[in-house]
Structure formats: structure tokens, C-alpha cells
Design a protein around this nucleic acid. Structure first.
Lengths: 186, 186
DNA sequence: GTCTATAATTCGATAGAC
DNA sequence: GTCTATCGAATTATAGAC
């Protein structure tokens, strides 16, 4: 157990965060209103202010996100791309925190910074463990493909991308990530 | 010449559209205000309403976008991927209409629909001319990579993606598009 | 065609009773 | 801790003078 003594207010706080993630994910930062979030959580809007101070801080609390990338240390080098692709699709499918971050990053500077940090600190080391050269470039390229999937499948909902099965998508994307990880341009 | 008799009001209208594209691209749909757009164009906010009716219609007029994809008919089949990658980077580098569409698509349903249509009607035929099978899937996959580049390079501005030179980027992305165009998942 | 004035909402945030 | 009431600001949109 992580918390020693759960207070009653923690339940309310958690309910607010769940509702906030939903709204931010659905509507983006600007259109997600504190009033709507409070209504979803079944509490008074002023409680949101009390717990989180203002809208910016509420978002920051709701948009904590961990990629939980798998440990690549023991993997066969030629399999990392596909494994990574599978993990990413599984991890992000239906995750509202990612959607909230993605949508908010378009207009909110804090969300952009958060996103940059996530990819730098969580994806960077994984890449470095596989390919010691051009780590930044490789991580960046992986980000383009991975975020492109997220954007087209979950935000834009392009029909052919939505229609693809999990396994089919992984089989197409895996080799791409593999080349960005271990290949050379050309 | 496309217009027979340019009226004086056409200049105002065009100035509004230019300012609108800038603001929508910079701030997204919600935060771009008619007042700010009018101020940029050096005219009164009510003129915007007069010319375009409301904010939605203004956006629709400002977000006309043509991918201007190259004719692939005469290209060597194995070169299409790289050519396509080069074209996309060149075409979108600094294009404010695309940025406006991309940013607006996150919270505006009309922008999403526009984006879907653009990829279906403009990218679809190009794919069909190269690979007759799985056209939808291939076009969708290309969209994931291409929009992923746009999102990370111009919206998120991930440092390593921004740092890449045009040619370097094309060399990395070209083979990916080529495989999505002519390859098989495996 | 162009501008002033303002209507009608809506939102984030605050003050204070209980 | 929870809620009512409301402020102050900002926005889209309209009405109408010139």
C-alpha cells in the first residue's frame, strides 16, 4: 500500500481527477470547463478550486503519465521494434491521460513541456540501451511514428487507421520502429 | 486570371483570411478570437462577421488545404516513397494552413471532417496508382507517419525532430513510406 | 461599407455562510 | 469541508447609426 492513511477527501480528489482526465481528453484544455468536470464528479465546482488551486494545476495533476516502457535489456535486438510497437498500442489504447495530454499539448504550453519531458526521459534511455549512436535522432523518429498513430487513431480517428486490428497495426509499425532504432538512413 | 473583376472588398477579405490562418495556426480554434484576427488584419471585428457570418464559417474558409501531391504516374516504383517524403516536408514546412487544420482538428469536429476528407480524396488516389491492394490501409499508415512528423515537428516541436535537416528527415522517412506503399506487414 | 454600442453567454475565481 | 452567490473579465454575435 502506498498511502498510510487514506482520508475521506482523497476519494473526492480522485473522483475529480478521473472526471478531469475524461473532459480534458474529450474536449481539450480550453473547452474542458471546471464546472463540467465538477458536475461529472458529482461535486461542487468550488471544491475543484479548493483542492487544486486553479485550472492549470488541475491539469498538471490529471496529466501525470508514465509510458511504462518495457525493459529492453534482455530482448533479442532484432525483436525490439515489434515489441515496442505492441507495447505502445496496448498501453495507449483507450488511455484517457494520453488523450488529454495530446489534446492539451496543442494549445497549452505546460502540456507541451510535459510531453517533451516524457519522451526525453522515458524513451531516450530505452533507445540508448539498444543503439548508442544518434540516440536523440532515433528517439525523435520513434516519437513521430508513435504519436502519429496516437493522433490519427484516437484524435482524428481516420477510418482505415481505426479499422486496423491491434496485431495488424503492430506488424506494420514494428519494422518501422526497428529501423529507427537500429538502422541507418538510406 | 481566375477572378474577372477584383473588388476592393476582396482585399479586405483576403487580409482577414491571412490573419485568421495565422491565429488559428498559432493558438488553435478556441483561443483564436475574432477580435484578435480583426486587429491583425487592421479592421473592425464586425467586418469579420459581415464577411464570414460566424467563427465556424471563417475557419472553414481559412482552412482550405490542398496537399498538391505530385503525380506518381511516371515515377519509378521504388522511388515513390522518398519522393513523397520530400514533397510532404517541403509542402508543409511553415505552412500555416496545415498548422491551423492540425491544431483545430483537436477540438473542432468540422476540422476533423475536413482532414479526413483531405486524406481520403487526395492521398487515396496516389496510393491506388501504386498499389491496387489494401489502398485504405496503406493510405492510413502513410497518414500516421506523415501527420506524426507534422505533429512532433511543428506542434510539439520535439527538439531532435526539429533539429533534423530536411534531407536527413527525408532519408529516414522515405523508406517507411515506401514500405507502407508497396510492402507487406511482416 | 464601416464603425459604435451592447446584448447574451460563459467562464475562472473569490467571499463567506454554515 | 461543502455549498450559495456573485464578481469581473472575456467572448461571440447582433442592432443600428453614419
Amino acid at each position: 500500500m502506498t498511502t498510510a492513511k487514506p482520508r475521506r477527501s482523497d476519494a473526492t480528489k480522485e473522483a475529480i481527477l478521473v472526471a478531469a482526465r475524461e473532459r480534458f481528453a474529450e474536449d481539450g484544455y480550453e473547452r474542458a470547463t471546471i464546472r463540467a468536470i465538477a458536475a461529472d464528479a458529482g461535486i461542487d465546482p468550488s471544491m475543484v478550486m479548493r483542492y487544486f488551486g486553479n485550472k492549470e494545476k488541475l491539469f498538471a495533476a490529471a496529466a501525470e503519465f508514465d509510458l511504462r516502457l518495457p525493459d529492453v535489456a534482455g530482448m533479442a535486438r532484432e525483436e525490439v521494434g515489434r515489441r515496442l510497437a505492441g507495447h505502445v498500442v496496448d498501453r495507449w489504447d483507450g488511455d484517457e491521460t494520453l488523450m488529454a495530454l495530446l489534446r492539451a499539448a496543442v494549445t497549452n504550453a505546460a502540456a507541451v513541456e510535459r510531453m517533451r519531458k516524457i519522451f526525453a526521459t522515458q524513451l531516450g534511455p530505452v533507445v540508448a540501451a539498444i543503439a548508442p549512436d544518434r540516440v536523440g535522432t532515433r528517439a525523435g523518429l520513434i516519437a513521430t511514428q508513435v504519436l502519429g498513430i496516437a493522433f490519427t487513431r484516437y484524435v482524428l480517428r481516420l477510418p482505415p487507421v481505426v479499422a486496423m486490428e491491434r496485431d495488424e497495426l503492430v506488424e506494420w509499425i514494428g519494422p518501422t520502429l526497428q529501423r529507427y532504432l537500429t538502422g541507418t538512413p538510406d
